[in-house]
Amino acid sequence: MVKKRIGSTLFLLCVFVVLYLPIFYLMFYSFNKAGNMTHFTGFTFDWYKEVFSDKRLIAIVVDTVIVALLSSLLSTVLGVFGALAIYLTKGRHYKNMLLSLNNILMVSPDVIIGASFLILFTLLGIKLGFISVLLAHIAFSVPIVVLMVLPKLQEMSPTLIDAARDLGAKRLDVLLKVVIPFITPGIFAGFFMALTYSLDDFAVTFFVTGNGFSTLSVEIYSRARQGISMSVNALSTLIFLITLAIVLVYYFSTRGMGKVKQLSGGEDA
């Protein structure tokens, strides 16, 4: 049994080391005096100074985060509706059809999505910029939210809903008090996945952005032609550390709250 423990700890350790290896590699070279990822010649903070003096870059980062948060929020709402719709659809064929349609955006290569959204937005007369990027990000994040929420719904036993309804609960009450709490982990997972998709996307954003609005990945890609400057590494390091800090603070603060609640006999976190 002990042996097994060690084995599984080692396995997890390996997974985490591999996951973080490239990130630490990037972070390491962000302090490189030589300004490249080839030879480390000396320690410097120059690249960080460059980041802070580049107002355009910082504005782009802020805009990227705004789009990511807003689009994930809205696509989560839409995705939960979608999952409920699919879950409640009776016919097997309709269900499969909806699911297939849901997944099309996930299989479609980014360029096609980008190009077709561009045509769509120009047809609808939506000005390219913040709104068009936001709409596009919502659009391509919805399917992943659906895929995250749907399994949760399917695990829910139908008797649960029936029981609630037998007790005279209204439709909205059943939804808010029974269904939603049950699928909350799925909703969170969907939100984080949507955030991930949004932060990562380049091709779709490229096509639908305009009028001075830009996101970080579009900027990074178009800088690649000149070779990536270590200030981009420095920026990524900063973003990574800030996110890590937020995750840690968030986690430990909510855990603290959960403990208090548990002691006072409230619902567990």
Partner: peptide
């Protein structure tokens, strides 16, 4: 206002479609 592209063809698509 400074905006960037990463290939001639991608830039062309953008200009052809208008919108910005």
């Amino acid at each position: 206002v400074y905006q960037t592209f990463d290939s001639n063809e991608a830039m062309l698509t953008k200009i052809q479609q208008g919108g910005t």
